[in-house]
């Protein structure tokens, strides 16, 4: 905890149904010094399944040797979300929950929720209130519902298994031997992983310098700037955590000392990027060009 008596993160961390907050990666998947294993982190795919296949080919992904971890927003907006989830499931990848997975999972649950279950005694039984996915519906989340319907129960179940925060832990001597953590948008510095606010972890872009509260808007300082500053003051250096994230396509590929921003805007005709860490703790960045799917 920070010494400031009014620091962010003092509250009881919000908890929700169908949301895993924190998970640790199985140790056997982490590259050791002996085995020739690799971890491959991939940023916001957004349903660009073609580009994902191309990227996996370019990094020469090998089953049983490599393990892929998606930094969230695997789905939504792009050409083929179901096919993208299929690829992720087939290669046995890990993932974290992005703001788009979050929306689609919630929309899926609301489609199956019990709302207005019984028609009243005078109601014409032939009138069906089935307007949930129409644009005219007063919720305005019809797009989320439409995508939720495109995904199979199996795919939704897999997406629900993605935690908000995935703790990888140290990868050999990588980046000074400190922990590596994957989160979709970012983390609030000085707050333990268990007490991070899940909405902000999936949506933050900036941090208010005065209150240190993260926010999704762009008014404050970029969160990763505060994060890097905070980490560089922790001693010894193996106490410093490196965050691998996505979410901010405007800032693009953004590699700093203790943060790795991987959203290189594939959806808008940028690139799809993979960050590879091998068993010697060496880091490599590989990307493929993307078609332009959206403005």
């Amino acid at each position: 905890m920070s010494k400031n008596p009014n620091s962010f993160g003092a509250n009881t961390r919000p908890q929700f149904t169908d949301m895993i907050h924190l998970q640790e990666l199985e140790t056997e998947l982490i590259p050791g010094t002996e085995a020739d294993r690799r971890l491959i982190f991939i940023g916001d795919v957004h349903g660009c399944s073609e580009e994902l296949t191309k990227l996996l080919g370019k990094v020469k992904f090998e089953h049983g040797k490599d393990h892929v971890i998606f930094a969230g927003d695997l789905i939504a907006k792009g050409p083929d979300s179901p096919a993208t989830v299929d690829i992720a499931m087939k290669i046995g990848a890990s993932c974290v929950r992005g703001n788009h997975e979050d929306r689609i999972i919630l929309a899926h649950n609301s489609l199956h929720a019990k709302v207005h279950p019984l028609p009243g005694p005078q109601e014409d039984p032939h009138v069906q209130e089935d307007f949930l996915d129409e644009e005219s519906f007063s919720h305005g989340d019809y797009k989320d519902r439409a995508l939720a319907k495109l995904l199979s129960e199996k795919q939704i179940k897999w997406l629900k298994s993605c935690p908000v925060i995935l703790k990888v832990g140290p990868i050999g001597n990588y980046n000074g031997g400190g922990d590596v953590v994957v989160a979709h948008a970012g983390l609030a510095p000085g707050v333990t992983l268990d007490r991070q606010d899940p909405f902000l972890v999936m949506n933050m872009r900036t941090i208010d310098l005065q209150t240190r509260v993260p926010s999704e808007d762009r008014k404050g300082e970029p969160w990763e700037k505060i994060w890097n500053h905070h980490q560089s003051h922790l001693h010894p250096p193996n106490q410093r955590t490196t965050v691998i994230y996505g979410h901010d396509s405007k800032r693009g590929l953004n590699i700093q000392t203790y943060s790795r921003g991987l959203d290189s805007s594939c959806l808008k005709g940028g690139q799809l990027t993979a960050l590879i860490i091998d068993s010697r703790g060496k880091q490599k960045i590989v990307s493929v060009d993307c078609k332009k799917y959206s403005g």
Binding site: N6, F8, A10, L106, N203, R212
Partner: peptide, 20 residues
């Protein structure tokens, strides 16, 4: 959905840190 953003907009981010 966006509970944290809604609270920041309505009460300011201090409302999420002020313990007094």
């Amino acid at each position: 959905y966006a509970y944290a953003g809604l609270l920041e907009k309505e009460y300011g981010s201090k409302a999420l840190t002020n313990k007094n």
